[in-house]
Nucleic acid binder design. Structure first.
Lengths: 239, 239
DNA sequence: TTAGAATATGTTGTCGACAATTCACCCGTT
DNA sequence: AACGGGTGAATTGTCGACAACATATTCTAA
């Protein structure tokens, strides 16, 4: 009944939150870009695979020009790597790559929490606290499959709360899809379900208190823990 | 004899350092992109101006497809804003926009300094110290026109020293050109010449001591000072 | 047999033309 | 005179074809 794949829920939650940020695709190049990105992130197109323009144009039923534009945008997102006169390949996934991404997340989301403590409206903070309450109930009922969507939504709201356009764009358009891609393809499950809730709670509290220093510090620690968690999983898989 | 325009020296120094990072343009779309970006950053194309594809294609003597690709890449850099079926405009410059960029610089370059303290080789650190010595001599001789190139070079080396690919790309391809564009078009001079040297010296010292915490903190303060400096200049201009 | 050059093939880069959309102008109606 | 709808010019989006480049294969010569 409720055993829907977590991915679906996650995407729903994301799109819900992001309606204030991302505009719906209008041109076919837009749609193709979103489709291609999704197919890569979710593993339909394998990591390291070559992206042949002619092949993709027949597959997606569009001209080579729109495929080229889509690939260009994927390159800007660092999802594919391109060499002139040779072609584009999906980026190679490595443990170091994922950990490097978390270094940036630590830096950027820490700043986002700091700015959120400064710039979020009281109403937005109230919504954030309400979100946390609903998470608490989910966790209490053991509905851990909601956790990833909830975690993503939590972070999204804080990032949006920073009110810094560049910060928002870097995280949403750049980092998050890459992280998801790495997680899916390296076979990582969702985030830690047990301990994360308390960390979220403390972060929200710091934001509500307008304590910029503490909000940043707690967010950085939160992501550092996440990073260590991933590193442990990866090393245990490899050994 | 040595009274060459500072801009020229700045670019020379940048390209010298960046040879390890950026590859030379090969296709005409590449060249057009670099040309267009330079023309926008240096104010040849005004802020807020509309970028007509047909007009640019005749101006630069290339086809519209090439111009489109260049504009797409400029959009990814947040140098132009695009609306579907309408066109692209150079971004509107605002005081808040520049200050928002410095918030990101603080976050990202702080992390870069932290990672540099961890990942730079002893040889690279020695080069960095040597660079600082040459700056000191320049400052002592009052050759302040070298300062901007020197400042840029200093930051570049530390960013490269982080060894984090995404971090490097975000700063070099994304932030720095935007900052330069804002500075040029808002009529800001180069960075602070007097106090910055000591700050640089302390940062290098922290990196040489492999003190990650301190390196990050000093770099963040360094950029915060710079940001405050800019804010003061801007408000004094406006009033 | 091997190294190197010439060639063949398939890919990407570039171009001009056509289709779709937007925006401004003009006309008609109230 | 003011507002709404319609028409037209101009711009962007999309397409198929050609040119340039990289790579694999084959052929030749030492």
């Amino acid at each position: 009944m409720k055993a829907i794949l977590s991915t679906t829920n996650c995407l729903t939650a994301i799109t819900f939150t992001m309606t204030r940020y991302s505009q719906t695709p209008v041109t076919t190049a837009d749609k193709t870009f979103y489709q291609l990105r999704q197919d890569i992130v979710e593993g339909v197109i394998a990591a390291g695979a070559k992206l042949s323009e002619t092949e993709l144009s027949t597959t997606y039923g569009v001209s080579r020009a729109v495929i080229r534009e889509a690939i260009n945008r994927l390159e800007s997102c660092h999802i594919v790597e391109r060499r002139a006169n040779v072609g584009a390949r999906v980026v190679a996934l490595s443990e170091e790559g994922l950990l490097a991404l978390y270094e940036i997340r630590e830096s950027l989301e820490g700043m986002a929490a700091r700015l959120a403590a400064k710039n979020m409206s009281d109403e937005e903070i109230a919504e954030l606290e309400a979100l946390l309450v609903s998470h608490f109930q989910d966790v209490k009922q053991g509905e851990s499959y909601y956790q990833e969507a909830g975690d993503v939504d939590f972070h999204y709201r804080i990032i949006l709360g920073s009110k810094n356009k560049h910060l928002i764009s870097m995280l949403f358009d750049g980092i998050y899809h890459l992280v998801r891609m790495y997680r899916v393809q390296l076979g990582m499950a969702g985030p830690r379900v047990t301990t994360a809730y308390d960390e979220h709670r403390h972060i929200v509290q710091a934001i509500a208190n307008r304590d910029q220093e503490l909000a940043e510090m707690l967010m950085r620690r939160h992501i550092t823990y996440s990073r260590n968690n991933i590193r442990n999983k990866l090393s245990s898989i490899q050994s």
